[in-house]
Design a protein around this nucleic acid. Structure first.
Lengths: 143, 143
DNA sequence: TTCAGCTCCATGCAAACGCATAGAGTTGAG
DNA sequence: CTCAACTCTATGCGTTTGCATGGAGCTGAA
Protein backbone atom coordinates (compact mmCIF):
# COMPACT_ATOMS: atom_id res chain seq x y z
CA UNK A 1 0.00 0.00 0.00
CA UNK A 2 1.53 3.29 -1.07
CA UNK A 3 1.85 6.23 1.32
CA UNK A 4 -0.47 8.23 -0.94
CA UNK A 5 -3.25 5.68 -0.60
CA UNK A 6 -2.72 5.43 3.15
CA UNK A 7 -3.01 9.18 3.32
CA UNK A 8 -6.15 9.20 1.24
CA UNK A 9 -7.74 6.50 3.39
CA UNK A 10 -7.05 8.46 6.56
CA UNK A 11 -8.32 11.70 5.09
CA UNK A 12 -11.51 9.94 4.08
CA UNK A 13 -11.95 8.49 7.56
CA UNK A 14 -11.34 11.84 9.18
CA UNK A 15 -13.92 13.46 6.90
CA UNK A 16 -16.42 10.73 7.68
CA UNK A 17 -15.82 11.26 11.38
CA UNK A 18 -16.31 15.01 11.08
CA UNK A 19 -19.46 14.64 9.04
CA UNK A 20 -20.83 12.18 11.57
CA UNK A 21 -20.05 14.46 14.52
CA UNK A 22 -21.51 17.49 12.83
CA UNK A 23 -24.73 15.78 11.82
CA UNK A 24 -25.20 14.07 15.17
CA UNK A 25 -24.89 17.45 16.86
CA UNK A 26 -27.38 19.00 14.48
CA UNK A 27 -29.88 16.19 14.93
CA UNK A 28 -29.43 16.12 18.70
CA UNK A 29 -30.24 19.80 18.78
CA UNK A 30 -33.61 19.16 17.19
CA UNK A 31 -36.42 19.39 19.68
CA UNK A 32 -37.87 15.93 19.16
CA UNK A 33 -36.09 13.86 21.81
CA UNK A 34 -38.46 14.37 24.69
CA UNK A 35 -39.83 10.84 24.82
CA UNK A 36 -36.71 8.93 23.86
CA UNK A 37 -33.09 9.90 23.40
CA UNK A 38 -31.44 9.47 20.02
CA UNK A 39 -29.65 6.35 21.21
CA UNK A 40 -32.88 4.88 22.48
CA UNK A 41 -34.54 5.77 19.21
CA UNK A 42 -31.79 3.88 17.42
CA UNK A 43 -32.80 0.72 19.27
CA UNK A 44 -36.51 1.23 18.59
CA UNK A 45 -35.76 1.90 14.93
CA UNK A 46 -33.66 -1.23 14.57
CA UNK A 47 -36.43 -3.28 16.12
CA UNK A 48 -39.01 -1.64 13.87
CA UNK A 49 -37.16 -2.85 10.79
CA UNK A 50 -37.48 -6.52 11.78
CA UNK A 51 -40.67 -8.51 11.54
CA UNK A 52 -39.45 -11.21 13.91
CA UNK A 53 -38.30 -10.52 17.46
CA UNK A 54 -34.60 -9.80 17.71
CA UNK A 55 -32.07 -11.32 20.05
CA UNK A 56 -30.03 -8.89 22.12
CA UNK A 57 -26.90 -10.17 20.45
CA UNK A 58 -28.32 -9.36 17.02
CA UNK A 59 -29.34 -5.92 18.17
CA UNK A 60 -25.83 -5.46 19.49
CA UNK A 61 -24.39 -5.84 16.00
CA UNK A 62 -26.29 -2.79 14.82
CA UNK A 63 -25.93 -0.52 17.82
CA UNK A 64 -22.78 1.21 19.00
CA UNK A 65 -23.04 0.24 22.66
CA UNK A 66 -21.35 -2.36 24.81
CA UNK A 67 -23.40 -5.47 25.44
CA UNK A 68 -23.99 -4.61 29.12
CA UNK A 69 -25.03 -1.07 28.26
CA UNK A 70 -27.43 -2.39 25.65
CA UNK A 71 -28.81 -4.93 28.10
CA UNK A 72 -29.61 -2.16 30.56
CA UNK A 73 -31.04 0.11 27.90
CA UNK A 74 -33.38 -2.72 26.96
CA UNK A 75 -34.30 -2.91 30.65
CA UNK A 76 -35.31 0.73 30.71
CA UNK A 77 -37.17 0.63 27.43
CA UNK A 78 -39.09 -2.44 28.64
CA UNK A 79 -39.80 -0.75 31.97
CA UNK A 80 -41.24 2.20 30.09
CA UNK A 81 -43.42 -0.08 28.01
CA UNK A 82 -41.76 0.46 24.63
CA UNK A 83 -40.39 -3.01 24.08
CA UNK A 84 -41.20 -6.49 25.26
CA UNK A 85 -38.75 -9.18 26.37
CA UNK A 86 -39.71 -12.80 25.99
CA UNK A 87 -37.69 -15.92 26.65
CA UNK A 88 -36.51 -17.58 23.46
CA UNK A 89 -38.20 -21.00 23.18
CA UNK A 90 -35.31 -22.23 21.03
CA UNK A 91 -32.56 -21.19 23.43
CA UNK A 92 -32.97 -20.89 27.16
CA UNK A 93 -30.19 -18.33 27.43
CA UNK A 94 -31.70 -16.01 24.90
CA UNK A 95 -34.19 -13.19 25.00
CA UNK A 96 -36.44 -12.13 22.17
CA UNK A 97 -37.16 -8.43 21.85
CA UNK A 98 -40.04 -6.81 20.05
CA UNK A 99 -41.71 -3.43 20.02
CA UNK A 100 -44.95 -3.01 21.91
CA UNK A 101 -47.76 -1.11 20.21
CA UNK A 102 -46.77 1.92 22.25
CA UNK A 103 -43.16 1.48 21.22
CA UNK A 104 -44.05 1.17 17.57
CA UNK A 105 -46.17 4.26 17.86
CA UNK A 106 -43.40 6.29 19.47
CA UNK A 107 -40.87 5.08 16.90
CA UNK A 108 -43.12 6.09 14.04
CA UNK A 109 -43.91 9.49 15.46
CA UNK A 110 -40.34 10.42 16.35
CA UNK A 111 -39.05 8.72 13.22
CA UNK A 112 -41.24 10.82 11.00
CA UNK A 113 -40.02 14.06 12.48
CA UNK A 114 -36.42 12.91 12.58
CA UNK A 115 -36.52 11.82 8.96
CA UNK A 116 -37.54 15.31 7.93
CA UNK A 117 -34.56 16.78 9.78
CA UNK A 118 -32.24 14.25 8.18
CA UNK A 119 -33.57 15.00 4.72
CA UNK A 120 -33.24 18.73 5.32
CA UNK A 121 -29.64 18.47 6.47
CA UNK A 122 -28.49 16.04 3.81
CA UNK A 123 -30.16 17.60 0.80
CA UNK A 124 -29.00 21.05 1.82
CA UNK A 125 -25.41 19.95 1.31
CA UNK A 126 -25.52 17.13 -1.24
CA UNK A 127 -26.97 16.55 -4.67
CA UNK A 128 -29.17 13.48 -5.31
CA UNK A 129 -26.23 11.94 -7.10
CA UNK A 130 -23.93 12.50 -4.16
CA UNK A 131 -26.50 11.01 -1.82
CA UNK A 132 -26.51 7.90 -3.94
CA UNK A 133 -22.71 7.71 -4.02
CA UNK A 134 -22.54 8.19 -0.27
CA UNK A 135 -24.95 5.38 0.36
CA UNK A 136 -23.13 3.04 -1.98
CA UNK A 137 -19.74 3.75 -0.44
CA UNK A 138 -20.91 3.62 3.17
CA UNK A 139 -22.73 0.36 2.54
CA UNK A 140 -19.46 -1.14 1.38
CA UNK A 141 -17.77 0.12 4.52
CA UNK A 142 -20.44 -1.33 6.75
CA UNK A 143 -20.15 -4.88 5.44
CA UNK B 1 -38.50 18.05 -1.80
CA UNK B 2 -39.84 14.86 -3.37
CA UNK B 3 -40.46 11.74 -1.30
CA UNK B 4 -37.86 9.92 -3.41
CA UNK B 5 -35.15 12.40 -2.47
CA UNK B 6 -36.18 12.34 1.18
CA UNK B 7 -35.90 8.59 1.06
CA UNK B 8 -32.52 8.74 -0.57
CA UNK B 9 -31.25 11.21 2.00
CA UNK B 10 -32.35 9.00 4.87
CA UNK B 11 -30.87 5.89 3.29
CA UNK B 12 -27.58 7.70 2.89
CA UNK B 13 -27.61 8.84 6.51
CA UNK B 14 -28.42 5.36 7.71
CA UNK B 15 -25.56 3.94 5.67
CA UNK B 16 -23.19 6.56 7.02
CA UNK B 17 -24.27 5.71 10.55
CA UNK B 18 -23.73 2.00 9.97
CA UNK B 19 -20.34 2.54 8.43
CA UNK B 20 -19.34 4.75 11.32
CA UNK B 21 -20.49 2.22 13.92
CA UNK B 22 -18.81 -0.67 12.17
CA UNK B 23 -15.48 1.11 11.77
CA UNK B 24 -15.49 2.51 15.30
CA UNK B 25 -16.02 -1.00 16.61
CA UNK B 26 -13.20 -2.34 14.46
CA UNK B 27 -10.81 0.39 15.50
CA UNK B 28 -11.76 0.12 19.17
CA UNK B 29 -10.94 -3.56 19.02
CA UNK B 30 -7.38 -2.80 17.96
CA UNK B 31 -4.93 -3.28 20.77
CA UNK B 32 -3.45 0.21 20.78
CA UNK B 33 -5.59 2.03 23.34
CA UNK B 34 -3.63 1.26 26.47
CA UNK B 35 -2.32 4.75 27.12
CA UNK B 36 -5.29 6.75 25.90
CA UNK B 37 -8.81 5.84 24.86
CA UNK B 38 -9.98 6.60 21.35
CA UNK B 39 -11.96 9.62 22.58
CA UNK B 40 -8.93 10.93 24.41
CA UNK B 41 -6.85 10.35 21.32
CA UNK B 42 -9.34 12.40 19.36
CA UNK B 43 -8.61 15.37 21.61
CA UNK B 44 -4.85 14.91 21.40
CA UNK B 45 -5.09 14.58 17.62
CA UNK B 46 -7.14 17.74 17.27
CA UNK B 47 -4.62 19.63 19.35
CA UNK B 48 -1.75 18.19 17.33
CA UNK B 49 -3.19 19.69 14.16
CA UNK B 50 -3.03 23.24 15.51
CA UNK B 51 0.12 25.25 15.86
CA UNK B 52 -1.40 27.70 18.31
CA UNK B 53 -3.01 26.69 21.58
CA UNK B 54 -6.73 26.01 21.29
CA UNK B 55 -9.53 27.31 23.43
CA UNK B 56 -11.80 24.71 24.96
CA UNK B 57 -14.68 26.14 23.03
CA UNK B 58 -12.84 25.66 19.75
CA UNK B 59 -11.94 22.12 20.69
CA UNK B 60 -15.58 21.55 21.49
CA UNK B 61 -16.56 22.28 17.90
CA UNK B 62 -14.49 19.35 16.68
CA UNK B 63 -15.21 16.80 19.38
CA UNK B 64 -18.47 14.99 19.97
CA UNK B 65 -18.72 15.58 23.71
CA UNK B 66 -20.71 17.97 25.85
CA UNK B 67 -18.81 21.01 27.05
CA UNK B 68 -18.69 19.78 30.68
CA UNK B 69 -17.53 16.34 29.62
CA UNK B 70 -14.82 17.89 27.50
CA UNK B 71 -13.80 20.18 30.32
CA UNK B 72 -13.28 17.20 32.60
CA UNK B 73 -11.51 15.17 29.96
CA UNK B 74 -9.09 18.07 29.60
CA UNK B 75 -8.67 17.93 33.38
CA UNK B 76 -7.66 14.30 33.25
CA UNK B 77 -5.36 14.69 30.27
CA UNK B 78 -3.64 17.63 31.99
CA UNK B 79 -3.38 15.64 35.22
CA UNK B 80 -1.68 12.86 33.28
CA UNK B 81 0.75 15.30 31.73
CA UNK B 82 -0.44 15.08 28.12
CA UNK B 83 -1.77 18.59 27.72
CA UNK B 84 -1.13 21.94 29.32
CA UNK B 85 -3.71 24.55 30.33
CA UNK B 86 -2.73 28.19 30.41
CA UNK B 87 -4.84 31.25 31.09
CA UNK B 88 -5.59 33.20 27.93
CA UNK B 89 -3.88 36.61 28.22
CA UNK B 90 -6.50 38.07 25.86
CA UNK B 91 -9.52 36.80 27.76
CA UNK B 92 -9.62 36.16 31.49
CA UNK B 93 -12.40 33.61 31.12
CA UNK B 94 -10.52 31.54 28.58
CA UNK B 95 -8.09 28.68 28.76
CA UNK B 96 -5.49 27.89 26.14
CA UNK B 97 -4.69 24.23 25.58
CA UNK B 98 -1.59 22.76 24.04
CA UNK B 99 0.11 19.39 23.92
CA UNK B 100 3.06 18.78 26.19
CA UNK B 101 6.08 17.03 24.71
CA UNK B 102 4.84 13.83 26.31
CA UNK B 103 1.39 14.39 24.86
CA UNK B 104 2.75 15.03 21.40
CA UNK B 105 4.85 11.90 21.69
CA UNK B 106 1.91 9.75 22.72
CA UNK B 107 -0.26 11.21 19.97
CA UNK B 108 2.35 10.45 17.33
CA UNK B 109 2.97 6.94 18.54
CA UNK B 110 -0.68 5.94 18.85
CA UNK B 111 -1.54 7.92 15.74
CA UNK B 112 0.93 6.03 13.65
CA UNK B 113 -0.45 2.68 14.67
CA UNK B 114 -4.04 3.83 14.38
CA UNK B 115 -3.45 5.24 10.90
CA UNK B 116 -2.29 1.86 9.72
CA UNK B 117 -5.47 0.26 11.01
CA UNK B 118 -7.57 2.92 9.34
CA UNK B 119 -5.78 2.47 6.04
CA UNK B 120 -6.16 -1.28 6.25
CA UNK B 121 -9.89 -1.11 6.92
CA UNK B 122 -10.68 1.55 4.36
CA UNK B 123 -8.60 0.26 1.46
CA UNK B 124 -9.87 -3.26 2.01
CA UNK B 125 -13.38 -2.09 1.14
CA UNK B 126 -12.94 0.94 -1.12
CA UNK B 127 -11.04 1.83 -4.26
CA UNK B 128 -8.81 4.92 -4.32
CA UNK B 129 -11.49 6.64 -6.34
CA UNK B 130 -14.16 5.81 -3.80
CA UNK B 131 -11.92 7.08 -1.02
CA UNK B 132 -11.65 10.36 -2.82
CA UNK B 133 -15.40 10.58 -3.39
CA UNK B 134 -16.07 9.75 0.24
CA UNK B 135 -13.78 12.50 1.43
CA UNK B 136 -15.30 15.05 -0.90
CA UNK B 137 -18.85 14.22 0.09
CA UNK B 138 -18.17 14.02 3.82
CA UNK B 139 -16.32 17.31 3.74
CA UNK B 140 -19.40 18.94 2.31
CA UNK B 141 -21.49 17.40 5.06
CA UNK B 142 -19.14 18.63 7.75
CA UNK B 143 -19.27 22.29 6.74
C1' DT C 1 -18.60 54.69 34.30
C1' DT C 2 -21.98 51.52 35.13
C1' DC C 3 -24.44 47.38 34.91
C1' DA C 4 -27.63 44.09 32.51
C1' DG C 5 -26.85 40.57 29.54
C1' DC C 6 -23.77 37.69 27.47
C1' DT C 7 -19.80 34.22 26.93
C1' DC C 8 -16.67 30.96 28.79
C1' DC C 9 -15.32 27.31 31.68
C1' DA C 10 -16.04 24.56 35.97
C1' DT C 11 -18.78 21.93 39.32
C1' DG C 12 -22.85 19.23 41.66
C1' DC C 13 -25.37 15.42 40.76
C1' DA C 14 -27.96 11.67 38.81
C1' DA C 15 -27.93 8.76 34.80
C1' DA C 16 -25.48 5.88 31.70
C1' DC C 17 -21.31 3.71 30.24
C1' DG C 18 -17.52 0.05 29.80
C1' DC C 19 -14.90 -3.63 31.90
C1' DA C 20 -14.78 -7.66 34.37
C1' DT C 21 -17.26 -11.35 35.71
C1' DA C 22 -21.13 -14.31 37.25
C1' DG C 23 -24.78 -17.44 36.20
C1' DA C 24 -27.61 -20.08 33.35
C1' DG C 25 -28.00 -22.72 29.13
C1' DT C 26 -25.94 -25.04 24.99
C1' DT C 27 -22.75 -27.98 22.50
C1' DG C 28 -19.72 -31.55 21.16
C1' DA C 29 -15.98 -34.88 22.04
C1' DG C 30 -15.26 -39.05 24.42
C1' DC D 1 -24.33 -39.66 29.48
C1' DT D 2 -20.95 -36.59 31.04
C1' DC D 3 -18.44 -32.63 31.47
C1' DA D 4 -15.28 -29.07 29.79
C1' DA D 5 -15.57 -25.34 26.78
C1' DC D 6 -18.37 -22.15 24.89
C1' DT D 7 -22.37 -18.67 24.20
C1' DC D 8 -25.69 -15.48 25.86
C1' DT D 9 -27.46 -12.11 29.02
C1' DA D 10 -27.28 -9.82 33.54
C1' DT D 11 -24.97 -7.59 37.47
C1' DG D 12 -21.18 -5.25 40.50
C1' DC D 13 -18.43 -1.45 40.36
C1' DG D 14 -15.66 2.44 39.28
C1' DT D 15 -15.54 5.94 35.55
C1' DT D 16 -17.48 9.11 32.35
C1' DT D 17 -21.35 11.49 30.53
C1' DG D 18 -25.04 15.10 30.10
C1' DC D 19 -28.03 18.53 32.23
C1' DA D 20 -28.52 22.27 35.10
C1' DT D 21 -26.27 25.76 37.11
C1' DG D 22 -22.61 28.71 39.24
C1' DG D 23 -19.08 32.18 39.13
C1' DA D 24 -15.85 34.96 36.82
C1' DG D 25 -14.83 37.94 32.97
C1' DC D 26 -16.30 40.50 28.78
C1' DT D 27 -19.25 43.94 26.17
C1' DG D 28 -22.07 47.65 24.82
C1' DA D 29 -25.84 50.87 25.52
C1' DA D 30 -27.18 54.45 28.60
Amino acid sequence: MTPAVTRRANDAWEALLSAHARLIKDFTAEDIWREVSMREYDVLYTLSKCREPLRIGELHRDVLLSQPALSRMVDRLAERGFIERQPDPMDGRGVRLSLTDTGRDVQRRIGHRHARGVARAMTARLSPDELRQLETICSKLAH
